[in-house]
Design a protein around this nucleic acid. Structure first.
Lengths: 139, 139
DNA sequence: AATTTAGTTTAGAGGAATTCTAAACTATTG
DNA sequence: CAATAGTTTAGAATTCCTCTAAACTAAATT
């Protein structure tokens, strides 16, 4: 699922995306240096901070293209803000309501005793578990 | 958890909300006639459709006040759109990605074999499971 | 029942995140 | 190296939601 940066060119090629300067730079930010959860704006700021000239529109385009290509997974936890997870393997999340940060839950740390069958005529696309936590001292 | 409409006045009183025309009308739409999942806009349209004059701002205010009072539960499944569930008991959801509709999963139909402990210094606020489904014929 | 008060509603402005548009740009193809 | 087809971009537009301050109304006080 995750491969080092040197493979990004290949990965882009296999899904038919041209290796543009912007996509390569964003891919490097995303996939080099471990698993990450980012918002579009975070990634955009990070790119600008490193002198990568890229527009916010392109960051959005790229995040969606990478999600479609299964390089990323979109996590919906926060009304009005999308997170993208570089870990596309089957796993779930803690969400810190205080800091609005995500933390992966390892696959083995959460399992179901039973799961309902999907309603007739539908297929399960994915099962998302969000454990919402807050700092102990809160209220 | 849910009580018939005739108790709405009492419920409002216990949480210190005045029984205004708008709140009573919205409460009636929400709590009469079974469990529901609504967005602010849906509820607003429904109210207008029934000749209830109420502004969208008031619908939002009311939904949040009812959520704070535990008459409703907010469900985050869809980027940039909040759903409110009149069922505030412990349960989870199917989400139909095609129609953007929610369906309750009965408490007994889903259970965990193991759940991770929250990170140090945090308490679990809630555990949300969303089973995302799509029509079988899709792709 | 009139007056005061404090909570409520509202239209419209404002804001945040995201998408759209159409022109300029660039990687690939022939 | 020109043609083409995919890409990027600034800025406008859109969507969902919140804020503001004035008008309104329920409840408390006289």
């Amino acid at each position: 699922m995750d491969r080092p940066y040197c493979h990004i060119l290949d990965r882009l090629k296999t899904v038919g995306l041209r290796p543009t300067r912007q996509r390569l730079a964003l891919a490097k930010l995303l996939f080099d240096g471990g698993k990450r959860h980012v918002t579009a704006e975070q990634l955009h700021n990070e790119a600008l901070g490193q002198g990568v000239r890229v527009s916010l529109a392109t960051v959005y385009n790229t995040l969606h293209q990478f999600t479609d290509a299964n390089f990323l997974r979109e996590i919906i936890v926060d009304a009005g803000r999308s997170y993208f997870d570089t870990n596309t393997t089957d796993h779930h999340h803690f969400f810190f309501e205080d800091t609005r940060e995500l933390l992966d839950i390892a696959k083995d740390d959460l399992s179901f005793a039973n799961l309902p069958k999907p309603p007739k005529g539908t297929d399960v696309k994915c099962v998302d578990v969000i454990i919402r936590v807050e700092n102990s001292h809160n209220s």
